[in-house]
Nucleic acid binder design. Sequence first.
DNA 1: ATGACAAGGGTTATACTATAACATTAAAGT
DNA 2: ACTTTAATGTTATAGTATAACCCTTGTCAT
Lengths: 162, 162
Amino acid sequence: MTHQSIAFHHEHNHSHCIEQALSQARSLCKARKQRLTAIRELVLRLIWQSHKPLGAYELLPALAEAGFNSAPPTVYRALDFLQAQGLVHRIASLNAFIGCPSPDAPHDGCFLICEGCRTVVELNADAIINQVQQEAQTMGFAVRQQTIEISGLCPNCRDKNA
Amino acid sequence: MTHQSIAFHHEHNHSHCIEQALSQARSLCKARKQRLTAIRELVLRLIWQSHKPLGAYELLPALAEAGFNSAPPTVYRALDFLQAQGLVHRIASLNAFIGCPSPDAPHDGCFLICEGCRTVVELNADAIINQVQQEAQTMGFAVRQQTIEISGLCPNCRDKNA
DNA sequence: ATGACAAGGGTTATACTATAACATTAAAGT
DNA sequence: ACTTTAATGTTATAGTATAACCCTTGTCAT
């Protein structure tokens, strides 16, 4: 099983995903002298509770339960920080957020979004990105950011429908 | 000048773009036995008034001026129709809509979005789409829809900034 | 230590985007 | 003409995101 396809196998031990994401976040923030505060860490943990993206407003109840303010700015601030650190990505086509499995280097994700189970996998898609760069260059266009979101059916859900 | 790059040259005779888009829309709808009503045609014309995407709410004042109801559902219905006919695309990363230059065959667009002048160009990006298909196939993922939106600077704006 | 400054968070209000639900009107087919 | 369907009008509301202001807490130089 490749790293990338793990999320499409619902039998995987997901607590590994969570713990790895959190410990990586802690060490990255430390190295960058950024503060992974309680709110920020909680939001990151909540987002990593599954491989399904969560909307900002879905996070608010859990913040309230944990005793924090649960007005929208609170969660958007945390999300802004996490995005800036590359710890989460925003999925524009879903208005939702997903944890980034490789936050070491800043990058734009390339996502496979299952319309059956809503699982999202981030591809390591150099080939696609290079292709985009090449097309853009032909037009004299200087790429700054790429939004690449592919919707369809993951292997599991495709088989179920068949 | 290629068809695709026209929008990045602001000297082009844009009335050609508008008239071509509208006449093509009329003939397509006729062939498909779909009704390009006054509201729908107006919305399409408004969207084609530039190569910059427009938000749904930016269209409402013009609808009101033309004597139509200008509540949100009116414009969203028109946009839904135009999207279904492939006459406009929605840009997810901007929550905005842009005219499609090649509505004959249904397709997902691949867009270059200039952050300087906000002009958007739709690429004819078979190479990218094939690359995406290939990556997805490797994962056993069945692609249904692609959202590919590239932000950056068009040739004009890039030169200005330099 | 302490004061100045910057960063984070609380709070209220509001902007922006999109759809639900139901009533009314207009068009198309018979 | 009658029926049926499609389109539009209308009101209300859901969902997403940010502005603005204030207070608290952490950081750092002195």
